[in-house]
Design a protein around this nucleic acid. Sequence first.
DNA 1: TTGTACGCGTTATCAC
DNA 2: GTGATAACGCGTACAA
Lengths: 341, 341
Amino acid sequence: MGKNKVTFDDIAKYTNFSKTTISRYFNNPDSLTVKNQEIIAQALIDLDYQENKLAKVLANGKSEFIGIIIPNLFLHYYAEMLNQILKTYETFGYKFLVFVSTDNEEAERKYIQELLAYKIEGMIILSHTIPSKELAESNIPIVTIEREDKYVNSVNTDNYMGAVQATSLLAKSNCDILLHINSDVHETTPSYGRIAGFRDICREYSIEHELILRNLGNSYHETVNCIQEVFGYIKKKYPGKNKGLFMSNDTHANIMLNLIFREYGMLPGEYRIIGFDDSPIAEEAIIPISTVGQQIEKIAYEAVALLVEQMNEQKKRRPKPQNGVIHKKITPILIRRETTE
Amino acid sequence: MGKNKVTFDDIAKYTNFSKTTISRYFNNPDSLTVKNQEIIAQALIDLDYQENKLAKVLANGKSEFIGIIIPNLFLHYYAEMLNQILKTYETFGYKFLVFVSTDNEEAERKYIQELLAYKIEGMIILSHTIPSKELAESNIPIVTIEREDKYVNSVNTDNYMGAVQATSLLAKSNCDILLHINSDVHETTPSYGRIAGFRDICREYSIEHELILRNLGNSYHETVNCIQEVFGYIKKKYPGKNKGLFMSNDTHANIMLNLIFREYGMLPGEYRIIGFDDSPIAEEAIIPISTVGQQIEKIAYEAVALLVEQMNEQKKRRPKPQNGVIHKKITPILIRRETTE
DNA sequence: TTGTACGCGTTATCAC
DNA sequence: GTGATAACGCGTACAA
């Protein structure tokens, strides 16, 4: 059997109906008699009909496409986020056209043009390269996740609350001094909340603390060296004190844990560690690491739901322009494991 | 400014050319005078034209879409594979429509129908649910990766060679007894090669060995318990002997390493461990784990390249039917780290 | 080098 | 309840 090229016309001839009636069978079957529905249903089987959504899109403008631009899938956080976004197909029926960012603004603009050329109805942006102001000018519904979002709708983890939870847990774990080790992120990125939350709680309860903000390297190997330095610094500066370490993410927490563990053959009571993200490494570490769990499934769902809302509005006769942007925050969940006991 | 609805017709009127000439400007610009090219180029800017690829597809049949069905993105292996597949956009220009499998045959058939409805030109399948025989009946170019592939083209890691390398490394590491711990995979899946390679090498060189094939659990927690049991079994059965453990993947290798390390506060010389996959956990473990590195980037590239070849053949006047299926094997790379020293 | 006319497969608008 | 006809936006013989 050759290529399937059965169209409404073929079905119409086969059944002695018109193309219009065939179209109705798909879009408004109740307007046909039950008998005629059956005739057409049988014809579809006989002819082995395969629908052509592209033609449908051209005719009615609804592509049911959502475009995604994501930084990479090497980090578990992004991979799982994409996973959960894709899974919303079961709920909303939208298909996803995915591009991975190359951290190149020009390339990314090209991706967006390509997406628009395929008549996507909305976009979910996780990459960081293009400023939200420019994104907002695309004139199509957009939702960003965990990135600078001043001019666009977004769904983010409540990083501030996560830091508050993590810091509080350390404070209650009999620590003399709390340290937050992070890179020097900009105030406009959502993850800056981790720094702010840590600082605020420490000040509010007058806990001795130190912020260690510095570049932690661009490869695993580099990062290990950077954290090794930090470890040496801490060890020298706070001997004998019970140290609570709030690491910026689980990968960093694991590196710190490994350095300590290899030095002492165990995790001494003098050290408490908590990470962020609840990535697999936190559970799989030499000792299960306490962490702040981002609700990735929920974030993904809310992002798509918010986008679908906007897209539905666009389909109306007179879509009312959005007044102001929506920023949803999802509260993370504290996960207590063995590194804070 | 409202929605962009500028078409070739608008540009034609604006420039006093015909639609055809505008079309030529895009598809065969050299057939226009340089001057006229400039006129049209300017018009595109003035009118803020945005191309519509869907209309183009309807007219010429080339969607430039590739469909992907992937099991999940929780496992690093799949996430990175998808990452690398998506990156081939820069080389081949194909766009990817991605579905994540739910391990439900019916759902997956629905995904395939949906993909076909969007006139994808080819498919890359990584999920395991639908037999290759059925896939082959789709009548469109297909390439599978690391799954049962009897009736379809595929690109796989040379699991057998990987096992040979891993086993040889253990053999040279002064081991008295070699053990391969794996689940009882079926002979038709590519990863069965890991078992076969281990067995063959041990027999060939008359090395004392044991295959431990059993269900290793469906969650991390379960797996830890299963491997704990295996560890107890080995410890009791081969006391004093130097044991070389070839684990089925890096996650399992890491679990085993952690169990041993926590028991002894170190990795005793009595134990050698090697994993498979070169996933991040192998590098991030308490001691960097030796492993067999799958060349994910290469596999992804070869898969897309092979698919593109098939798709190009399909576009010819008289596409010659493929005689026999192609199975490409990519040799993995041995990565020696500290658990085999 | 440029234009005319029709086709791609579906939906939408009117009729009947 | 059903049908004829015109969109939808672009590509492509065939002409000129």
